[in-house]
Computed example of a mutant assay.
Amino acid sequence: MTTDDPAARLAGVRAQIDRARKLAGRSDAVELIAVSKMHPAAVIAPLIAAGQWIFGENRVQEAQAKWPALQAAHPDVRLALIGRLQSNKAAEAVALFDSIHSVDRPSLVAALAKAMDAADRRPDCFVQVNIGDEPQKGGCAIADLAGLLEHARAAELPVTGLMALPPADVEPAPYFALLAKLARDHGLAGLSMGMSSDYPTAVTLGATHVRVGSALFGARA
């Protein structure tokens, strides 16, 4: 097998996750989310055949276009929404995704709670934190996290953890450590953090979900 082989790439990423878990003395599992955004079904199918069952998409519309046929053939596949969600797409997101990693404002909490009640379906939710205080990124400010979590819990949203994207081109470890502390402070076990460039570091610092794209799919054309 070569690095062009999806099964080999998947095995390599899983091996890195296992090494990082052992380095950190962890015995719990880490969920690998294969970031399939902008990749067609023909590219995704070989990873499913290699044993990957959890995939991440950025946009509701793109997921709606390509996943129904894939899920009809592979009903055990699960989907995670990892991109920013418009409130007017909440019902569609609740219908399609098994987890939503980008809850970041009270209006979205309200829209998701309404959609979940209507559909009687409750995807796991992660509150996204703007961990680097970057104006171009989604996520709630650290100072607003306690209030947003209180709002989400009052709305009976199934919040299981926190998500963050550290600033690019800087050492991510301090940001991962800060997100882990915030999760502990608020009694949350889930940590959605780490991408292709830094997921082993994220795992050593407690990530329970890593979002890996290029290391699994290769660079996009």
Rank of each mutant, 00 (worst) to 15 (best):
A34N: 06
V35A: 12
V35R: 06
V35S: 10
S36K: 05
S36I: 11
K37Y: 12
M38G: 04
P40F: 13
A41W: 07
A41F: 08
A41I: 13
A41V: 13
A41L: 11
A42F: 08
A42E: 15
I44T: 14
I44E: 12
L47E: 15
L47A: 13
L47W: 13
A49M: 12
A49P: 04
F55Q: 04
G56W: 07
E57Q: 05
N58K: 02
E62P: 01
A63M: 08
A63K: 02
A65Q: 15
A65P: 03
A65V: 12
K66Q: 14
A69I: 09
A69L: 11
A69C: 03
L70C: 12
L70A: 14
L70I: 14
A73V: 03
P75I: 14
R78C: 05
L79W: 03
A80K: 00
A80H: 14
I82G: 04
I82M: 05
I82F: 09
R84K: 07
S87G: 10
S87M: 08
K89I: 12
K89L: 11
A90C: 09
A90N: 10
A93E: 11
A93C: 04
V94Q: 07
D98K: 01
S99I: 01
I100Q: 08
H101N: 12
S102W: 09
D104F: 02
D104P: 03
R105F: 09
S107K: 15
L112R: 06
A113P: 05
A113Q: 07
A113K: 02
A113T: 10
K114I: 11
A115V: 14
M116I: 12
M116K: 07
A119W: 11
D120F: 07
R121V: 15
R122T: 15
P123F: 05
C125M: 08
C125W: 04
C125R: 03
F126G: 03
F126R: 00
V127D: 02
Q128V: 14
Q128W: 07
G132T: 13
D133H: 10
E134M: 09
K137L: 09
G139H: 02
C140I: 10
C140W: 00
C140G: 02
A141Q: 08
I142T: 13
A143C: 02
D144I: 04
D144A: 12
D144W: 00
L145A: 09
A146Q: 03
G147K: 01
L148F: 07
L149N: 01
H151K: 05
H151N: 11
A152G: 03
A152L: 00
A154L: 05
A154V: 07
A155N: 01
E156C: 06
E156I: 01
E156T: 09
P158A: 08
G161T: 04
G161D: 02
L162N: 05
L165S: 03
P166I: 13
P166W: 12
D169T: 04
D169G: 01
E171P: 02
A173N: 05
P174M: 10
F176R: 09
F176E: 13
L179N: 07
K181H: 11
K181M: 06
